[in-house]
C-alpha cells in the first residue's frame, strides 16, 4: 500500500535551534498513527510543515503525492489545531457551513458531521455559549467534512471527558475504515490508549520510536512489578528470601523481567501460607512512554 503522507529526513531549524532533526515516517490510507511527545518536542512544528505553513530546513514531505501547501495537497488534508476558538457570534452550524464552503463540500454534509459529533441539538446556539468539550467537537466536525484523505489532529482529545474521548476514537476509527489516513498528536500514551495502529514518539525533535504499540511494549522490555502481600508475622522472611522492597507493614514489591516472571511466581507460591496474595502489574502505558520520551536512546 502506498503511503498517503510521506515524511522523509525532515529537519527544521529555528534560530540555530534544531526543532526537528531527520524525521522520517509514513502514514498509509486507513491507518491511525499517533505522534507523541512533550510540549516543545516538535509535534506542532511538524504539522505546520505538513500543512505547508513552514518550509523545512531539509528533507521532503508529500501529501497524497503533492507538495504541502499546494492546492492538491490542501484538497487532501483536513486540520484541527491544538487550540481554536471559533467566532463567538456565529452558531455551530454556521461555522461548519462556512468551512464546508471553503473546502467545496456539499452543504448536506454539514448536518451529518454535526450529528456525528453529537452537536445537532446545540447546532443553532452561538459558539460563545459552547463548553470546551463542545468547541473541541465542533472543531472535529469541521475537520471531518468531506471525507478528507488525511486528517491532521493536534492534541484532539485534550479537554475531552473520558466518554467524549471514547466517542472521538470511535469516530476516528470509522473514518479510517473509509480510507482516511489519520495522524494525531498527543501528550502521552495513556491518552491514546490502544486505539491507534502505530505510535511515533518525538523527543527533542528526534524520532525515537515508530512502531505498533505492542511492539513498543515488547522492545521497551520494562520490568513487571510483583506485589506480594505477606502475613504480618512472615513479612521479614518473605523480604529476605525474595529481595525487593518493603512497601508497608505487610507488602513486598519485586521487579522482574518478563522471561523470569513464572520462575518468580513459583518461588513465591513455594513460600506457602506466609503469602496471602500476589498481584502482577505489567508496565503501564505511561511507563512505556516515559521510557521512550525521557529515557536513553533505544535501538530497534
Amino acid at each position: 500500500m502506498t503511503s498517503l503522507l510521506n515524511i522523509s529526513n525532515v529537519s527544521m531549524c529555528f534560530a540555530h535551534r534544531d526543532v526537528l532533526s531527520d524525521v522520517s515516517f509514513d502514514v498509509a490510507p486507513g491507518e491511525r498513527a499517533a505522534l507523541l511527545g512533550h510540549n516543545g518536542a516538535g509535534k506542532t512544528t511538524l504539522f505546520r510543515i505538513i500543512l505547508g505553513f513552514l518550509n523545512p530546513s531539509a528533507g521532503q514531505i508529500t501529501v497524497n503525492g503533492a507538495v504541502p501547501g499546494t492546492a492538491a495537497a490542501r484538497n487532501a488534508v483536513s486540520y484541527l489545531p491544538e487550540s481554536v476558538s471559533f467566532p463567538k457570534l456565529l452558531t455551530g452550524r454556521e461555522t461548519v457551513a462556512f468551512y464546508a464552503k471553503l473546502k467545496g463540500v456539499a452543504p448536506a454534509a454539514v448536518d451529518q458531521v454535526l450529528a456525528d459529533v453529537d452537536l445537532t441539538d446545540a447546532a443553532d446556539q452561538r459558539c460563545g455559549t459552547y463548553s470546551k468539550g463542545m468547541r473541541q467537537r465542533l472543531g472535529l466536525a469541521q475537520a471531518m467534512l468531506g471525507d478528507p484523505k488525511l486528517l491532521l489532529l493536534d492534541e484532539p482529545t485534550s479537554g475531552l471527558d473520558p466518554l467524549a474521548r471514547q466517542r472521538f476514537y470511535h469516530l476516528i476509527s470509522k473514518m479510517a475504515e473509509r480510507g482516511t489516513a489519520v495522524l494525531l498528536s498527543s501528550h502521552g500514551l495513556s491518552e491514546i490508549e490502544a486505539r491507534t495502529d502505530r505510535v511515533a514518539i518525538l523527543r527533542k525533535g528526534k524520532l525515537v520510536a515508530d512502531a505498533p504499540l505492542t511492539d513498543l511494549q515488547h522492545s521497551a522490555n520494562l520490568p513487571l512489578r510483583i506485589r506480594v502481600q505477606a502475613d504480618t508475622a512472615h513479612v521479614d522472611t518473605v523480604h529476605q528470601q525474595m529481595g525487593g522492597q518493603r512497601i508497608n507493614g505487610a507488602t513486598v514489591e519485586l521487579e522482574c523481567r518478563y522471561p523470569e516472571k513464572m520462575q518468580r511466581l513459583s518461588a513465591i507460591s513455594a513460600l506457602g501460607p506466609a503469602v496471602r496474595d500476589v498481584e502482577v502489574y505489567p508496565p503501564s502505558l505511561d511507563d512505556i512512554y516515559r521510557h521512550y520520551s525521557a529515557g536513553k536512546e533505544t535501538k530497534q
Binding site: 500543512l51 505553513f53 490542501r74 484538497n75 489545531p81 471559533f86 467566532p87 471553503l102
Partner: peptide
C-alpha cells in the same frame, strides 16, 4: 490568535 486563520489557510482557498 484564535487559530481560525490556520484552519482557513489549511483549506484550498
Amino acid at each position: 490568535d484564535r487559530g481560525t486563520l490556520q484552519l482557513t489557510l489549511a483549506s484550498p482557498v
